[in-house]
Design a protein around this nucleic acid. Structure first.
Length: 513
RNA sequence: GCGCUCGUAGCUCAGUUGGAUAGAGCAACGGACUUCUAAUCCGUAGGUCGUAAGUUCGAAUCUUACCGGGCGCACCA
């Protein structure tokens, strides 16, 4: 990781020179003319040092610019108070061959996502959480964080009863209860002898598999009831004095843990609330040894975040109030349009487009890219007609084409590897591409730290841009042997790097298109 | 009404702990295929970063108020 390494080096050397800074953080200048990295440290010194940022930066730069540690690797210059760093070509070549060692993480993470009710088919919103979750999972795994993925199956409770009643009614050719499920799929389920819940679940698995998604753990809610976990969780809360009775119900005072009001655990009719089950579930996760929980939820459940967090904090320790140990990613909903008209997505109407249909229409790669390319906080408006007619212009093809083009060259030209590189000087296009390649570990590490999978998509797109430019302006077949050798090495690196990014995104890297 | 969230180019969206002249794609316009794949590249045009204050060397980013969209506010799941 270049950036981290440079930050540490700078900090160390400045400390030796008598400038102890707690941390140095490098940023990527917007304008690449300034350099590859920059630091604004001088701006924070103006008061103490009683000098202008420019002056302070020059002083700091003097201390390091001739340091042997940076000889042949970094060129410094000061502009507008910023200290700019430019990496040498030799350094870039060296980095290309360096294996990345990501810092070790002690936390063991459980990533729960999708967790759709098995009472109906998955819709595009589920697709979004699914793609976000699986990309995040790939990302965390890639940077060496221990992580397991889990799908929580809501196979108990009221909705399940209503669901079974609906299918039963359909089987008996009776009208479906008012408060039941009225989708057309209910009749399909009724026509089959299979258990309808299991049938839905199998269908979920198939749909997710089409997107290349599998889960480490499928966790059944029913097992929490059967094992007595829910009851014992409530007992535990009672003993801790965190519950009280009011109007015939048992309440949990979650307010003291940041919730805006207290919540019912056992209703006046003696039934458990979903909340009671859910905190038992989350406690169970921690009992299984996970020290960090990440949940991806739809925005329609965001009002639920605080009470679950409060519950977990009460049972398992206040550190779960912190995002570092219990993180929620709230995915905004996806509005599905067809020809400018909104498509309703309710499971109860029957008038819905399923995730399955979307994947069949535009393909897994495009579906994944479209859903992961945007931050989870944005509201996506997705027009199916538009997606179909413009599928050839989808950025995912731009990226895949970049990979295919490189493959095309490799098919025609075989690479000679062993000879030492005769010409390692980089022209701007070559340099841009190689630099971007060796920066991947930094990008992935930071994306993993901030839990922002969409940054991987942007990285891949940027990579494709540089590859196309390289392809257009740096011929290989007709280049002289020195350039050819050098460019082939860059090409192989770029192709491998892009393929890795695509793997994390769960998108195929075709060798021809 | 309260809470969460979003508002950046005509459209869809990036913009990293606050940094240098605000960034892409699509759409529009003009160029580049006798070449390793033109699903590409180059160029032009496009902006009161919702509005108004505040914080400071410096704000799209932080604070407050308002405007507008989405979603939540159950002894449903």
């Amino acid at each position: 990781m270049i950036k981290k390494t440079l930050e540490k080096k700078l900090q160390k050397i400045w400390a030796e020179c008598g400038f102890p800074f707690p941390t140095i953080s490098l940023e990527l200048p917007k304008n690449t003319l300034y350099g590859d990295y920059a630091t604004n440290i001088a701006f924070s010194l103006t008061k103490d040092w009683r000098m202008s940022p420019q002056h302070a930066a020059e002083k700091l730069c003097d201390a390091i610019s001739t340091h042997p540690e940076f000889a042949n690797s970094v060129v410094f210059n000061v502009q507008n108070g910023f200290i700019n760093l430019r990496l040498s070509d030799a350094f870039l070549w060296e980095q290309k061959n360096q294996a990345t060692a990501f810092p070790e993480t002690t936390d063991s993470t459980l990533l729960e996502y999708v967790s759709a009710n098995p009472t109906g088919p998955l819709h595009i919103g589920h697709g979004r959480w699914a793609v976000l979750g699986s990309t995040l999972f790939n990302l965390l795994s890639y940077v060496g964080m221990p992580v397991k993925s889990e799908f929580y199956i809501n196979d108990a409770g009221n909705q399940i009863v209503k669901f079974y009643n609906s299918v039963d009614a359909a089987r008996k050719k009776e009208p479906i209860p008012e408060d039941g499920y009225h989708g057309a799929y209910i009749h399909d389920l009724a026509a089959s002898a299979k258990d309808p819940l299991q049938a839905n679940l199998d269908h979920h698995k198939e749909t997710l598999f089409k997107l290349g998604i599998t889960f480490d753990i499928w966790f059944s809610e029913k097992t929490l009831h059967d094992s007595g976990e829910v009851v014992s969780t409530i007992e535990q809360l009672k003993k801790a004095g965190m519950t009280y009775e009011k109007e015939g119900a048992l309440w949990f005072s979650t307010v003291q843990f940041g919730d805006d009001k207290d919540r019912v655990l056992i209703k006046a009719d003696g039934a458990l609330t979903y909340f009671a089950v859910d905190i038992a579930y989350h406690q169970e996760k921690i009992k299984r040894g996970f020290s960090r929980l990440i949940n991806i939820w739809g925005a329609d459940h965001h009002g639920y975040v605080n009470r679950v967090r409060a519950g977990v904090a009460a049972l398992c320790g206040k550190h779960f109030l912190s995002e570092a140990h219990f993180h929620f990613i709230i995915g905004q909903l996806v509005s599905l349009m067809r020809g400018g008209e909104p498509v309703r997505m309710s499971k109860r109407t029957g008038d819905m487009i399923t995730l399955d249909e979307v994947i069949d229409e535009i393909g897994s790669d495009a579906t994944r890219f479209f859903l992961v390319n945007k931050g989870p906080d944005t509201h996506i408006e997705f027009d199916l007609e538009l997606a179909k007619t413009k599928s050839a212009e989808n950025p995912v093809y731009y990226i895949q084409y970049a990979h295919a083009r490189l493959s095309g060259i490799l098919k025609k030209i075989t690479q000679k590897t062993d000879a030492p590189l005769a010409n390692w000087e980089l022209n701007p296009t070559e340099r841009q591409l190689l630099l971007h390649c060796v920066q991947m570990p930094d990008v992935l590490w930071e994306a993993a730290q901030h839990l922002v999978p969409h940054r991987v998509a942007h990285y891949a797109f940027q990579m494709a841009r540089y590859i196309h430019l390289f392809y257009e302006t740096c011929p290989i077949a007709q280049a002289d042997p020195k350039d050819q050798e050098k460019r082939l090495l860059i090409l192989v690196t770029a192709q491998k790097t892009l393929a890795e990014a695509l793997t994390i995104l769960g998108i195929s890297a075709p060798t021809e298109m």
